[in-house]
């Protein structure tokens, strides 16, 4: 996956909590057998009406056209485990998602795809969402989000996951280095 450290962009404010993965990528788009090409279907039923015309949704707002940072409320990515959700987010152009909390499976899926999920407090997220066309600079190394107005928000991230994201490492190759441990575990299991 693509390494990630610094991302600068206007934020896309998605002022909702409990955004589920069915909304992020609807089931009719899950039949493809590739990892790419899901971006055009991101939030499809919120972006387009029944006739396929753009609706009044934040992704259709010209101001956020080139945004690479999505900001939402609590429990982002709940529901289905479909990795098509982060694939769609990435393919659309987002590299960072900021929310007070994420669903566990979605959070993990972001980590495997070079998307940085950042947890800030509810108050911090509300403050970010309340600002007009807010530009921020995200830095994973320093674990900060710095606003154009000079406000600095710090975030926590698991050091292992941070290292994976910064380096864009392939986790499977790393795990192969533990083959002896896996084999020993299996042998012990067989002996029991």
């Amino acid at each position: 996956m693509e390494p990630i450290n610094e991302v600068k962009s206007v934020i896309t404010p998605l002022n909702q909590k409990n955004v589920d993965t069915d909304q992020i990528i609807s089931k009719e788009f899950l039949k493809r057998i590739e990892r790419t090409g899901f971006g055009k279907y991101l939030f499809y039923h919120w972006r387009f009406d029944a006739e396929g015309n753009p609706s009044e949704f934040v992704l259709n707002d010209e101001r956020y056209k080139d945004s690479t940072i999505l900001v939402a409320h609590d429990n982002f990515g709940c529901g289905s485990s479909r990795e098509h959700a982060p694939w769609a987010i990435l393919d659309y152009g987002f590299r960072v998602v900021i929310a007070p909390s994420f669903a566990d499976i979605f959070y993990n899926n972001c980590m495997k795809n070079g998307i940085l999920p950042i947890k800030l407090s509810v108050d911090e997220v509300e403050s970010i969402l309340s600002k007009e066309a807010y530009n921020v600079a995200v830095n994973l190394e320093t674990q900060t989000v710095t606003g154009a107005d000079g406000v600095v928000y710090s975030f926590d991230i698991d050091p292992y996951q941070k290292k994976m994201l910064l380096n864009g490492w392939d986790e499977i190759s790393l795990t192969f280095q533990y083959e002896d441990h896996i084999k020993a575990f299996e042998n012990k299991k067989l002996a029991n």
Binding site: E83, K112, Y178
Partner: peptide, 14 residues
């Protein structure tokens, strides 16, 4: 699990 983890389990059983 997500699909990347599916691939990880297929490859390493962990």
């Amino acid at each position: 699990i997500g699909t990347s983890e599916v691939e990880h389990v297929l490859s390493t059983q962990t």
